[in-house]
């Protein structure tokens, strides 16, 4: 990462030379450490269940189960990058899901039904953003807590509180379709479309956050909103965009869940916002904004998926999952505190 030409020109050799191995490894660990964690976890799980764990079916299953959380977490990550929070994503997921299920039952054309979920999510996210910035809510917590109740209420209202079952294949495609890859040793290899969607969405977000002007400004706003403001950045507009995008992803998650379950049910996604926050935090993002990577969030989602997968495989009570995930959150943040103590000059 150091610039050799610069160093020789300025003659700053002594200062720049030979930091300890640990210090040099730190940025790399910082960036890719989460992959290491996943690898270790994978090996342990493989040791526990050698026959099942690495089977194609189980691996794709993990991705199928994490697809919804992936969508919620990446939107949540954007919000947390700006030092905000969006508590409404679980309810918005349900609202998007119910909107499209009800519209389908009312006989709307499938392209509209398909777009309705994400569109409803986008709209609620926009309302969140406007409330936080223009109505000057003291903290995003308040506005999105309000939206948590409003969206849930709306989801119940439009459906009468009952589930709607049966959706056209085109609407279900993203959430449930499989692409057949062929056969290997007598087992059929099917690639769930949800996995492809996850990867594509994460790639788009990676390019957006690392390489677009707006993405870099989101990081800057998370680091120091005042600095961004005096740099001529319209912070309010960026925040409205961020919350809108988070809402869009929640609506999209609603579409995926509707596809997977072939239905809409108004109790969908209760508590999902907390799982999304957990994935983001496990992935190393700072709750105070400005720090974290798309790869980290992906890792956080996968770690949570691996835990529930393995505990299910090993017939461990779901209550242990909760305890374990809680522990991991605390440990992950503790490691972050330690890491930051080494990395930053105070």
């Amino acid at each position: 990462m150091t610039v050799s030409t610069d160093r020789s020109r300025t003659g700053n050799r002594t200062e720049a030379e030979a930091p300890g191995l640990g210090i040099r490894l730190l940025p790399i660990l910082d960036r890719y450490g989460i992959l290491l964690v996943i690898l270790v976890m994978g090996l342990v799980l493989y040791a526990l269940q050698p026959d099942v764990f690495f089977s194609w079916r189980n691996i794709t299953n993990i991705f199928k189960q994490t697809a919804v959380n992936s969508m919620l977490a990446i939107g949540m990550f954007l919000v947390i990058l700006t030092a905000g929070i969006d508590l409404s994503v679980g309810s918005v997921l349900a609202l998007g899901m119910m909107s499209l299920a009800v519209a389908n039952a009312a006989g709307w054309a499938w392209p509209i039904v398909l777009l309705l979920g994400p569109a409803v999510g986008l709209a609620t996210g926009f309302v969140n953003g406007v409330g936080i910035t223009k109505l000057r809510m003291p903290h995003p917590f308040i506005m999105t807590l309000g939206m948590l109740f409003m969206a849930r209420g709306l989801a119940n209202l439009i459906s009468g509180g009952v589930p709607y079952t049966g959706l056209p294949d085109a609407v279900r495609f993203l959430g449930s379709a499989q692409i057949e890859l062929g056969e290997l040793d007598g087992t059929r290899l099917n690639l769930p479309v949800g996995l492809i969607v996850t990867i594509v969405v994460y790639l788009i977000f990676w390019v957006f956050l690392e390489h677009s002007v707006l993405g870099r400004r989101i990081y800057a706003i998370g680091g120091n909103p005042q600095a961004a403001r005096v740099s001529g950045i319209n912070v309010d507009r960026v925040l409205i965009f961020v919350y809108s995008l988070c809402g869009l992803m929640a609506g999209f998650a609603g579409l995926m869940m509707a596809g997977r379950t072939n239905s809409g049910f108004p109790n969908a996604g209760i508590g999902a916002e907390l799982e999304a926050i957990a994935a983001v935090i496990i992935g190393g993002a700072s709750f105070f904004g400005g720090r974290g990577t798309v790869l980290g969030v992906f890792g956080g989602v996968i770690i949570m998926g691996l835990i529930s997968n393995t505990l299910n495989l090993n017939n461990v009570s779901v209550f242990w999952q909760q305890i374990l995930i809680g522990l991991i959150i605390v440990v992950a943040v503790f490691l972050d505190v330690v890491r930051r103590g080494i990395g930053t000059r105070r």
């Binding site: 990081y219 680091g223 120091n224 961004a228 400005g290 720090r291």
Partner: peptide
């Protein structure tokens, strides 16, 4: 241009990005 008392730099991003914040080369 104004240099603010509290510096108005974002600590989480690098020097180059701070210098061009709001006027990023594209």
């Amino acid at each position: 241009e104004m240099v603010y008392q509290d510096l108005a730099l974002a600590e989480n991003i690098n020097i180059a990005e701070n210098i061009f914040l709001g006027r990023e080369p594209v």
